[in-house]
Design a protein around this nucleic acid. Structure first.
Lengths: 195, 195
DNA sequence: TTAGTAAATTAACCTAAGTCAATGAAGAGT
DNA sequence: ACTCTTCATTGACTTAGGTTAATTTACTAA
């Protein structure tokens, strides 16, 4: 389970095996039940980030019109950055909820600073993880701008087929920016074209 | 001109005025003519990031079908992160081009490392800038998922009205994920509803 | 197991965006 | 100033997605 994280450290730092083990032992790892809110829109978060070892976390917000908008699903080996925007102490624009039972590495602010002092290389690793995140978001946005809902669905089918089974359809629809009805029709259309 | 950057440093670091001035003097600041490519899709970049002091830079890529997709416009006071993805030395997924004459702070890899050693606080500032970038992208994506092309155009009208005049319409359309024809009709529709 | 609720599918209708084609306006370069 | 090309607008037509509502299917909890 924790191997996932050790692999990450091997890839992005030159920390020794002992150091890696020391780090992973001082990490906070928590389990959460399906339905547990890690963060609520409008609240303040003392947590800086999560790292998914097992399970699936959904990120979403409620827009002005009251509609629920899903902006991401995080699964195994993915980091969930919690951005507190320009000024420290701002309130969260979105919610995070476990849609499966989860095991997560929890990165709070205090331990982050302590760890950075002890292992300066971690700062670089975190920067690298943020870069990866940023790159993924850029791709996601590009994908979104350039393609139709149907193409978007096909991309998910191709790139993360597990999601389609793990995630309720109406949440997937909200992630694709369409209504559940449309998603239903798209699926039928695709099934038909594969006779 | 350089004040913009000094302000940034004051906001995100506790560096002294002298240190700030020393940093800003060792920065590379370049001017580019309209039409200049800072980075081409498929090429490798030795530059880590830019910071816009003056002008406007467009980020775009050509998708599989040959269509040009604009993913962002960067103007004054904005940082342009250049993400080289997971493995160092990967090729760029997009192009960067000046659509106006520009004055930019140029951050290359070597000087970054030198500066980080000399002024460790800079590393934190860069992390903070990346967080802001990440936050903006999250908002942009949420905006995109949750609203129609017409709403998206209205959001741009509201949040960055200068863009509409500074940017060619067909590029703005490509940024909104629609055809130039649709953008034209949207504008007419809005004009009508304001009689 | 059953009853109650939430989610997924289907259908009918409407509207906004895509496509294709033509015209008019704006910019760039000589 | 003039030409050439690119860009913006408009119109006619098609189509995919939104909306509303009804039905079926799947979950959940007592």
């Amino acid at each position: 389970m924790i191997d996932i994280l050790l692999k990450y450290m091997s890839d992005f730092t030159s920390l020794s095996g002992d150091e890696q083990r020391a780090i992973s032992e001082s990490l906070r790892i928590d389990e959460y039940k399906k339905g547990k809110y890690l963060l609520r829109q409008g609240e303040f978060s003392a947590i800086k980030c999560y790292f998914v070892l097992k399970g699936c976390v959904r990120q979403f917000f409620i827009d002005e019109s009251g509609k629920e908008v899903t902006t991401n699903f995080f699964t195994e080996e993915q980091a969930i950055p919690i951005i507190n925007e320009k000024t420290q102490g701002e309130l969260s624009k979105y919610s995070l909820v476990c849609i499966e039972d989860c095991i997560l590495v929890v990165g709070d602010i205090d331990s982050e600073n302590t760890m950075f002092n002890q292992y300066p290389q971690l700062e670089m690793m975190i920067r690298k993880m943020m870069e990866i995140n940023l790159g993924e978001m850029q791709e996601q946005l590009g994908e979104f701008i350039s393609s139709s809902p149907e193409e978007r669905y096909k991309t998910v089918l191709r790139q993360c087929p597990q999601l389609i089974d793990r995630v309720p359809q109406h949440q997937l629809a909200s992630y694709l920016g369409i209504t559940p009805e449309s998603l239903s029709r798209i699926k039928k259309r695709i099934k038909k074209s594969n006779f």
